[in-house]
């Protein structure tokens, strides 16, 4: 009972409490929810080392078992421990901490983002060669939009840009909204399945 039923009941009770707080008590609404939110945030933050433990466990086993690429695991753990200690002891505004963090993270962030241009080209190239109708329609429409966004589109015909704008504003928006509406209803049904206790995967069932 303590293992399954009580946690299941806790989920429902908590959901009802938050739902009623949000719907009723207009003056207290923000206060009750803000306090609950802050308590739950504190509760969640207590688990801050959980991810680190997982990372440490995996990479120390990689090293211990001398799995392929284990020296990189050793390096990862060294960076992890060094920066955790430095950040906790000196604070995250320390110039060495900030300087090294920026110098190492900026190239990864900016370069990973920029290589997506290569990958999109390869995806587009493949999609044109692929037999299915979906990809072909998608690519024709993508090429149209690209043409409309560069000067050559205007040279071909001023209508290229007009059609693109219309596609985006009318059928495009309608598709987007219908998909968002469908997503809401389906997401709501998924939430209800947990609320009503039909789905209990989070409780290991």
């Amino acid at each position: 009972m303590l293992r399954r039923e009580v946690p299941a009941v806790l989920t429902t009770v908590m959901a009802i409490f938050v739902f009623l707080s949000a719907m009723l008590f207009p003056l207290e609404e923000m206060k009750i929810l803000a306090r609950t939110d802050s308590l739950l945030q504190f509760m969640g933050n207590m688990a801050l080392f959980l991810g680190g433990i997982n990372l440490f466990r995996l990479h120390s086993r990689n090293i211990k078992k001398k799995r392929e690429y284990w020296p990189f695991s050793l390096w990862l753990l060294a960076v992890f421990v060094f920066f955790t200690v430095l950040g906790i002891v000196k604070g995250n505004n320390d110039p060495l901490y900030k300087g090294l963090y920026d110098a190492l993270i900026v190239p990864v962030n900016a370069s990973m983002h920029s290589i997506s241009a290569f990958f999109l080209c390869s995806a587009a190239f493949k999609a044109f060669r692929i037999k299915n109708l979906d990809s072909i329609v998608l690519m024709i429409s993508a090429v149209w939009v690209m043409l409309a966004s560069v000067p050559i589109g205007e040279i071909i015909s001023p209508n290229v840009g007009i059609v693109k704008d219309w596609l985006l504003a009318v059928p495009g928006s309608a598709v987007a909204r219908a998909m968002a509406n469908g997503l809401f209803l389906a997401g709501f049904a998924a939430t209800l399945r947990i609320f009503l206790g039909l789905e209990r995967r989070h409780l290991g069932q």
């Binding site: 293992r3 806790l10 938050v18 739902f19 719907m23 739950l40 509760m43 809401f184 290991g204």
Partner: peptide, 23 residues
């Protein structure tokens, strides 16, 4: 299994929030 307690509370909170606000 004790980890289910904080998990249940967090999920319950999100469900209540979403039932009230998402519509």
């Amino acid at each position: 299994w004790l980890a289910r307690y904080p998990i249940s509370i967090s999920i319950g909170y999100s469900i209540g929030y979403s039932l009230a606000y998402s519509p």
